[in-house]
């Protein structure tokens, strides 16, 4: 029993070390972005993680905005102040960054992990090394930077749609005076809240990329591990995102 506990703890500790190591490696090798192929991969990552996720994120944001708005009306009544406060605290501060991160984790995290695992299985990481290309610089830096850039932008986009479209769509079904509602909402948002949200989203981006890279690049070189790498990336990323969110919740008490 004790041996299995030690094994599990060892695996968790090893995963945390690898994931943290990837973040540190990426941050300390940012100068790799000066190389054209590295920058090209970074653009691709931003495009895949950010631009291509705009549509699913918009659908999710409209749905969440609408559901929250109609439910809050039922629970809290028609008072603007309380509704705005709830929307800001629950949806914009907590739900939007986390939900956006889950969308990115499901799309990009799984894709990154399976892509890197496939590259390892096919001997492409060896090929990079033989060409004098540091796989850490070429594979990890663009993915970590790409996610760290794309996630906060996507989160802001998500928040804007939730705040803008949610009440507008809900007003078709429940009585909402949109003018004063938007005025109260935007007046209550502070710069500090926006900065905290951006910082949290950047951390989420780092966590997703690092969990995906560590799940993909450290798998054994066998084909059966390619789908498992994607699965591991999603599960590990999910747990790490919740842990990171909890840390932010404590820090912003």
């Amino acid at each position: 029993m004790r041996a299995s506990h030690t094994h599990v703890l060892g695996s968790i500790s090893s995963f945390f070390r690898l994931t943290a190591g990837i973040v540190v490696h990426a941050i300390t090798h940012l100068d790799a972005l000066r190389r054209r192929p590295v920058m090209a991969v970074t653009y691709k990552q931003v495009y895949f993680t950010g631009i291509q996720a705009l549509l699913p994120a918009a659908f999710a944001a409209v749905a969440i905005g609408f559901i929250m708005e109609t439910q809050m009306r039922g629970l809290l009544g028609s008072g603007i102040e309380l509704n705005v406060k709830m929307l800001k605290l629950v949806v914009l501060r907590e739900f939007a960054p986390l939900f956006t991160a889950f969308i990115v984790l499901g799309r990009s995290g799984a894709a990154i992990a399976s892509e890197l695992a496939a590259m390892k299985v096919q001997g492409e990481i060896r090929s990079l090394y033989l060409m004098g290309i540091d796989p850490g610089e070429y594979l990890l830096v663009p993915r970590v930077v790409g996610c760290a850039v794309a996630v906060p932008v996507l989160t802001f986009y998500f928040q804007a749609i939730v705040a803008g479209m949610g009440p507008a769509l809900a007003s078709v079904f429940v009585e909402i005076d949109l003018g004063p509602y938007y005025q109260a909402l935007f007046a209550s948002i502070t710069l500090q809240e926006l900065l905290v949200s951006a910082a949290k989203s950047i951390c989420f981006g780092l966590v997703i990329a690092a969990a995906a890279c560590s799940s993909g690049i450290y798998v054994p070189p066998s084909r059966i591990w390619i789908p498992q790498a994607a699965e591991l990336a999603v599960i590990r990323g999910f747990l790490l995102l919740l842990a990171t969110d909890a840390v932010f919740a404590l820090l912003t008490l």
């Binding site: 892509e115 496939a118 001997g123 090929s127 033989l130 004098g132």
Partner: peptide
């Protein structure tokens, strides 16, 4: 300064 041929193309 070393070229590697005979394989090693990056699939993506």
């Amino acid at each position: 300064q070393v070229g590697h041929a005979g394989g090693g193309l990056i699939s993506n």
